[in-house]
Computed example of a mutant assay.
Amino acid sequence: MKNKKFKLAAVALLSMITLAGCSGGKDIVTMKGGKITDSQFFDELKKSSTSSETLVNMIIQKITLDDYGNKVDQKEIDKQYASYEKQNGGKKPFEALLKQNNMTAKQFKENIKQSLAFTEMLKSHIKVTDADLKETWKTYHPQVETQIMSFDSKEDAEKALKKVNDGEDFTKVAKSDSHDTTTKEDGGKVKFDSTTTTEPAGVTVPNEVKEAAYKLENGKVSDLITVQNQQTGADVYYIVKMVKNKQKGNDYKPYEKELKEIFEQTKIADATFQQEVIGKELDKANVKIKDSQYKDILTPYLPQKETKTSESKTSDSKESKSSKTKSTDSSKKETTESTK
């Protein structure tokens, strides 16, 4: 437990050092011959290479909570907190982990709220069109029910496939032979669609396996499917039995809700889109940086506004004068020719 790192992906974006209360002259350390005040400590923190990033996160946090915090449902906060508890061994182990990282349950829930508010902010900038839904529809497949076995050894996979092809029950073979400890006890049962969502949650179904599964009729079993593990480079072998397939047909309307959710989740995960939204929200909030050290920290986020340089203005002025001169000369020429 001592060396366990505290990684919380859902709230990582807005994790921050709390600097409130560091602006005064209160002593925080005393010693023989001297002391350290909170203002001295604050000045030292400002020298840190991460201080700009921390301040940016604090600004985003304030804007996000002020404008979108009221859209967050407390039930969702509690649900996510419970999920983290479960992932980390239960209530007591998780509380011990929080304490180890100088955090209380209340503070952690506040971080979850911050993350959810940030998602709400992103959603408020998403406008889904029919064109977006049709584009998402191209790669969408409705949820199917399958049984899957996976193997690290080709030899083991071939043996299992032979058993199934010889008439042995797929469920029985999965329970005895599959290397997937998450699903084997239930006979390899997995539901999935073309997104990352699976039942049970957290099961990884490679795209190659999905594509092979979609082609199967109910009750049919695939050949051996070889997939390369992207992290290790090793081959993993899969066998799929289709329990209940569902063809999507030609009309996307019945799946409009699912398609909208997929499109929104794709946009929310897009780093470029996130930065665009942050820029718009910062611009809307009219944020002013009073400390000269940090005057440019928001520049990478703010929308770039077109400005004419003095050189450009001079050039425009010259072009305008030139145009006027040409017009006058042309007029004089026409008058002279008319007189003749």
Rank of each mutant, 00 (worst) to 15 (best):
N70E: 11
V72S: 06
E85P: 02
Y81E: 11
K62C: 06
G24R: 08
I36P: 07
I36R: 12
S39P: 00
D43R: 04
K47F: 06
L98P: 03
K92G: 01
A105R: 13
G34T: 13
N111R: 12
K71D: 12
Q107Y: 04
D27R: 10
S52R: 05
A20D: 12
S15Y: 06
N70V: 05
Q87H: 11
I60G: 00
S48G: 08
G21V: 12
I59Q: 01
K26Q: 14
D67I: 03
D38A: 10
T64K: 02
M31N: 05
D38K: 15
S52H: 00
T104F: 02
T18G: 08
K32V: 08
K99F: 07
D27Q: 13
D43C: 01
I112D: 02
V29W: 13
T18H: 12
Q61M: 09
A96T: 08
F41H: 08
I112E: 00
N101H: 13
I60E: 02
N70A: 10
N57M: 02
S83C: 10
N101T: 11
M58H: 02
K62F: 07
M103T: 08
K46H: 03
N88D: 08
A96Y: 07
Q87I: 05
G21C: 07
M16F: 01
F94C: 09
T37H: 09
N88S: 09
F42E: 10
Q74P: 04
Q40K: 06
V29L: 15
A96G: 06
T37P: 07
K75D: 14
F41L: 14
S49D: 11
K35Y: 12
Y84N: 05
D78A: 08
F42I: 07
S83Y: 13
D67W: 06
N102K: 15
M103I: 10
T104I: 06
T64Q: 04
Y84E: 15
S52Q: 09
S49H: 09
G24V: 04
K32W: 02
D73N: 12
L98H: 03
G90E: 05
L97K: 02
K106T: 12
D43L: 07
G21R: 09
L65F: 05
G89H: 10
S48F: 01
K47I: 04
F42P: 01
A96N: 13
I112P: 00
T64M: 03
K26H: 14
I59K: 00
D78I: 01
M103Y: 03
E44P: 00
K92R: 13
V29Y: 15
I59D: 00
F41Y: 14
S23K: 14
C22T: 11
G33F: 06
C22Q: 08
Q61G: 11
K86E: 15
E85L: 15
L97M: 12
E110S: 12
E95T: 07
I17A: 05
N111L: 15
